[in-house]
């Protein structure tokens, strides 16, 4: 069966194609799983709309008052409702991959997956991305419905740029959550680490307000963090679409995805080595 080995190039190509096909299938599975749980999708959409209602009420009030000597002058003309709609759209779409990883590690199900010839971690991340895409689709529909109902407009270019950079931003978030989940190899409860990470995402990613409104020291830290690539830069495209900024954003996101992927791979290798020695 495997007695004749084909030339190296073809073998590598075939292997790569196999990995890609598996990842694609895993992505499809993640999407199907998300669709199967449609009551949860609807619940999330409702939460999204309610949160948007409250936050846009806040920002409308602030923008409407235009108090002198405050940052109100720095607010975009239409207020921040669009921005918050975008940032919450990304944030709420990121699936809880950390729970999945923690569960697999703790329950021992990881061993079953290690017995397969394809990298478990890659497949899990692909699944999470599939899940994320379905969530993003659902929430986008909800947001568009809200836009139509409220009669508020949104720049078409902004929507397109947001769609593109938002998906990459979500991918950054997935990798960050994955790091927390993989900590399950060493610590029993990842929840505190997760909560901390999530709050950093809210704060440094500019979930409730663009990072550009922060005091300068804070802003610099936030802009340098992966969280800005996850939430702020994509969301900013909706209120101030610019092809140049989009290119920069995409490059930054690609850079962070590469860095985080390396970190995730390193943690995974260390974790699996530990598993092989100690069996968890």
């Amino acid at each position: 069966m495997r007695s004749i080995s084909p030339p190296l190039g073809i073998e590598a190509w075939r292997r790569g194609a196999g990995v890609l096909a598996s990842a694609g299938q895993a992505l499809r599975l993640g999407a199907l799983s998300a669709l199967a749980g449609w009551p949860v999708l609807i619940g999330r959409a409702i939460f999204y709309l309610v949160a948007l209602a409250v936050l846009s009420a806040l920002w409308s009030k602030v923008a409407g008052e235009r108090l002198p000597g405050t940052l109100a002058r720095a607010l975009p003309a239409g207020g921040l409702a669009l921005y918050v709609g975008a940032s919450e759209w990304i944030m709420l779409s990121i699936p809880s991959i950390h729970l999945r990883l923690e569960d697999d590690i703790r329950s021992g199900a990881l061993e079953t997956h290690l017995l397969r010839p394809k990298l478990y971690l890659l497949l899990r991340i692909a699944e999470a991305v599939g899940d994320m895409l379905v969530r993003m689709g659902t929430l986008a529909l909800a947001a568009l419905a809200l836009l139509l109902l409220s009669g508020r407009g949104a720049p078409a270019a902004g929507l397109a740029f947001l769609a593109l950079s938002g998906v990459l931003g979500g991918a950054v978030g997935v990798l960050l959550y994955a790091i927390v989940g993989l900590a399950g190899f060493w610590i029993r409860r990842t929840l505190p680490a997760f909560l901390l990470l999530q709050k950093l995402m809210f704060l440094l990613g500019g979930l409730f307000a663009p990072v550009s409104l922060y005091p300068s020291a804070f802003r610099r830290i936030a802009e340098a963090s992966p969280f800005a690539a996850q939430l702020y830069w994509p969301s900013d495209q909706l209120i101030a679409p610019s092809a140049a900024m989009l290119a920069q954003t995409l490059a930054l996101q690609a850079g962070w995805i590469a860095v985080l992927a390396l970190i995730v791979a390193a943690i995974w290798r260390a974790g699996v080595a530990r598993l092989l020695k100690q069996g968890i």
């Binding site: 806040l58 009030k61 602030v62 008052e65 405050t70 409104l213």
Partner: peptide, 8 residues
């Protein structure tokens, strides 16, 4: 509140 002082 550092940035916006008050709201409503």
């Amino acid at each position: 509140f550092a940035g916006f002082k008050s709201v409503g």
